[in-house]
Design a protein around this nucleic acid. Structure first.
Lengths: 198, 198
DNA sequence: TGCAGATGTATCAGCTCGATACATCGCCCA
DNA sequence: TGGGCGATGTATCGAGCTGATACATCTGCA
């Protein structure tokens, strides 16, 4: 049972709750705003996920403040446990093939603030090669195609390719920025403690 | 039973088979090349769809040429029936909310060659307002957000918004082209037969 | 000959989507 | 005072898809 949840949904929930405690409805709105252009979560996946996280002890229901009249229980506010924070840290260090799929990349990126520089770089590069691989596949499949394509199909291909190329350029910029920051950092570390280099 | 299939998958299959008869494996490759940058179909949806189309009499297994030695049956090549062609025409005239969802728009566009000009225009405009609506939602949700966002989140939002704006501009160009063609056509019709129309 | 990889059909557990149900809250207006 | 209504809120379910897997055949090639 434990640990069999959808990886990226778990990351999204734990990451959001780490910023501050939330109840289901608000959690969904947060995530769907955060990822507005990329994907949307539905209750049918969120509530089962919350239930699983509860039974695994990664989140708990937050106690309502004492001055609230008893007997009312409409909102159910969840917050991370220590185990939940630990699990979140674990998820944030994982950079695997699923991290750079279309549906998952946005989530990982959205929590980059809490991610180590090295992991960020691996995810960005993984995403980039995923896109390049896809372009390569399409291009060769297209080259193998005998028949001439109509103008609408061509335009669709052109637009798709251009979009992906644009995302690759975006990733390139991000990767360069990350590398420059890493270089700056190691430079200043060398300045501080001269004599110990890589 | 009849007519309860996923609309867009049905369109994709019927549309592909209309160009030329295919077997399942090849059909999948065709579609995934055609839509390479946008989506991919899996066998788990394709085969059930083919099965349903068969039982509804919209496609049939094509007879192998007589000179092939009997007893072998590896490939199962499907082709459209008359009913299938009719159904395809019906699907091609439908332009509804599902036509401009992310997953479906590409399919509809890919078969624009077989689609009437008026329907093309409705789908393009529908897609455009869908995107504009999404941008509006994100922008207002963002404006309502109190807390300052970190730079990664902002960059993700910016990139997402830019991508969508770019697609809207692309749609605008396509819509203008369609309108210009429609105007040309009606103009030349007026020139040819003044006083009467088709 | 053998064998690796592409071609080819097919199914299944597990999960997600979209719809739906139902209750409460805050607010306005008569 | 009530009552209507849209937003807030929790929850579930059937339909249908994904990703994995199984298994067979064909093809090139060493």
């Amino acid at each position: 049972m434990t640990g069999s949840r959808n990886g990226v949904l778990e990351l999204a929930v734990l990451g959001s709750l780490h910023e501050n405690p939330l109840h289901g409805y608000e959690l969904r709105k947060r995530l769907n705003t955060l990822l507005g252009m990329f994907r949307a979560f539905s209750y049918g996946s969120l509530y089962p996920c919350l239930k699983g996280l509860l039974t695994d002890g990664l989140i708990v229901e937050e106690e309502p403040p004492d001055d609230v009249v008893l007997g009312r229980r409409s909102k159910i506010v969840y917050k991370l446990t220590a185990e939940g924070k630990e699990r979140l840290q674990e998820l944030l260090t994982q950079a695997g093939p699923s991290s750079w799929e279309d549906e998952n990349f946005g989530i990982h990126f959205a929590f980059f603030r809490h991610t180590e520089a090295e992991v960020r770089l691996r995810i960005l590069e993984g995403r980039r090669s995923r896109l390049e691989e896809r372009m390569e596949n399409v291009r060769t499949a297209l080259a193998r195609t005998r028949e001439r394509l109509d103008s609408y199909t061509l335009e669709l291909q052109r637009h798709g390719l251009e979009s992906v190329e644009r995302e690759v350029r975006w990733l390139n910029e991000l990767i360069n920025t990350e590398r420059a920051q890493a270089a700056d950092k190691s430079q200043s570390e060398r300045d501080e403690r001269p004599g110990s280099d890589e």
